[in-house]
Computed example of a mutant assay.
Amino acid sequence: MLPKVNQILHIQVNSIDDEESRIEYKSRIADVTDSSIVIEIPINEQSGRLKKLYYGDELSTFYIEQGGVKHYFTTTVTGFREDVIRLVELHKPEPEAITQVQRRSFLRVPAELEIAVKVSDQIQFIGMTDDVGGGGISVVYDGQIPLGINTTISCWLLVPYKNGNIEHIPFSGEVVRVKKLETGKQLAMVRFVEILDRERQKLIRFCFERQMDFRKR
């Protein structure tokens, strides 16, 4: 489902500046054409400052439909329009490029993905996920590693896509449960504590690809 006029678009700018890329802006959709989504100048609601966008800026965005369904998509700035106020033209995504996710119900799929985990400066290791989702992951690791409930960890997840692209998704998480496996290894269930919306979107897309693979079997 494509966004409509007057809906609020939540925006993050894909920037090499890590601090800038974490800021979320909001904008009202002023018009939707065959090729563009036209928005008002985004605003940072915390500071009240407007965000100046430039041609070619890459944006990670989402809008919320009734029932709390988030619709994620990525886009770029394609131009500007002078009206009563200045407007920004964004590339209109194809409907199939929009990912839909319930706010409190993220899709979770079985997946063995390589993950780098940092517990502290002294404790770092490479593990494999058992499953992944938009709200968290489960990771299998050596049983000798001291990783307890409520431990906060920093992670980098290696995510491959069907088109051959590979993404490295950083996030911080909290261990909510630990289970000993018959192999002697441990399984830690981790919920996301801090993850950029655009990074979560990448993971959600992987989950949808994996789910489609399962359905075809």
Rank of each mutant, 00 (worst) to 15 (best):
V5F: 03
N6M: 08
Q7E: 15
Q7A: 03
H10V: 07
I11Y: 08
Q12K: 13
Q12E: 14
S15V: 00
S15A: 03
D18C: 06
E20G: 02
S27L: 07
V32M: 01
D34N: 13
I37W: 06
I37R: 10
V38R: 09
P42L: 07
E45L: 11
Q46S: 09
S47D: 05
K51Y: 04
L53Q: 04
L53R: 06
Y54T: 07
Y55G: 01
G67C: 03
V77K: 04
V84Q: 10
V84W: 00
R86V: 13
H91S: 14
P93T: 06
E94M: 13
P95D: 10
E96R: 09
A97D: 15
T99M: 06
Q100M: 14
Q100G: 03
Q102I: 08
F106D: 12
R108K: 14
V109I: 15
E112Y: 11
S120G: 01
Q122C: 09
Q124K: 15
Q124I: 12
F125D: 11
I126K: 07
M128R: 14
D130C: 04
V132Y: 13
V139K: 08
D142G: 01
L147S: 07
T151H: 13
I153Y: 03
P160C: 03
Y161S: 01
I166R: 02
S172W: 05
V175F: 14
V175S: 10
K179W: 08
T183H: 05
K185E: 14
Q186Y: 12
L187D: 04
M189G: 14
V190N: 06
F192H: 08
F192D: 07
I195Q: 09
R198D: 01
R198L: 00
R200T: 11
R205K: 11
C207G: 03
C207E: 03
E209M: 10
R210S: 13
M212Y: 06
D213Q: 14
F214Y: 13
F214A: 11
